[in-house]
Amino acid sequence: MMMFAATGKIVPRPGRAVDIAGRLGLAAAPTFALMASMSAIGSPGMAMCSAASAFVAINDMALMYLLMSVFHLSPWLKLLCARSQRSGTPVTQTEGD
Rank of each mutant, 00 (worst) to 15 (best):
M1A: 07
M3T: 14
F4S: 13
F4E: 13
F4W: 10
A6I: 13
A6K: 14
A6Y: 12
A6N: 14
A6D: 15
G8T: 13
G8N: 06
G8S: 09
K9M: 09
I10H: 04
V11L: 10
V11M: 09
P12W: 01
P12M: 05
P12H: 01
P12C: 04
R13S: 10
R13C: 04
P14A: 05
P14I: 10
P14G: 03
R16M: 12
A17L: 11
V18N: 07
V18Q: 11
V18T: 12
D19C: 10
I20M: 08
A21G: 07
A21S: 10
A21L: 13
G22C: 11
G22Y: 14
R23A: 10
R23D: 10
L24Q: 12
L24F: 13
L26C: 09
A27I: 14
A27C: 14
A28N: 06
P30S: 04
P30R: 00
T31G: 12
T31H: 07
T31A: 15
T31S: 14
F32P: 03
F32D: 08
F32Y: 14
F32K: 03
A33Y: 11
A33C: 03
L34N: 01
L34I: 14
M35S: 07
A36T: 06
A36D: 08
S37K: 05
M38F: 05
A40S: 11
I41L: 08
I41P: 00
S43W: 09
G45K: 00
G45W: 03
G45F: 01
G45H: 04
M46G: 01
M48K: 01
M48Y: 06
C49R: 01
C49M: 04
S50G: 02
A52H: 01
V56G: 02
V56S: 05
A57M: 01
A57T: 03
A57E: 06
I58L: 00
I58V: 05
N59C: 06
N59W: 01
D60M: 04
A62N: 03
A62F: 03
L63Q: 03
L63T: 07
L63C: 06
M64E: 02
M64A: 02
Y65I: 01
Y65F: 10
L66I: 01
L67C: 13
L67D: 09
L67P: 00
V70C: 10
V70N: 03
V70T: 11
F71R: 12
L73D: 06
L73Y: 07
L73E: 05
P75N: 04
P75H: 05
P75Q: 05
W76L: 00
L77T: 08
L77Y: 11
L79M: 13
C81E: 10
A82D: 12
R83I: 10
R83T: 03
Q85G: 05
Q85P: 00
Q85M: 12
S87V: 12
G88F: 14
P90V: 02
V91M: 06
V91Y: 08
Q93G: 14
T94Q: 15
D97H: 14
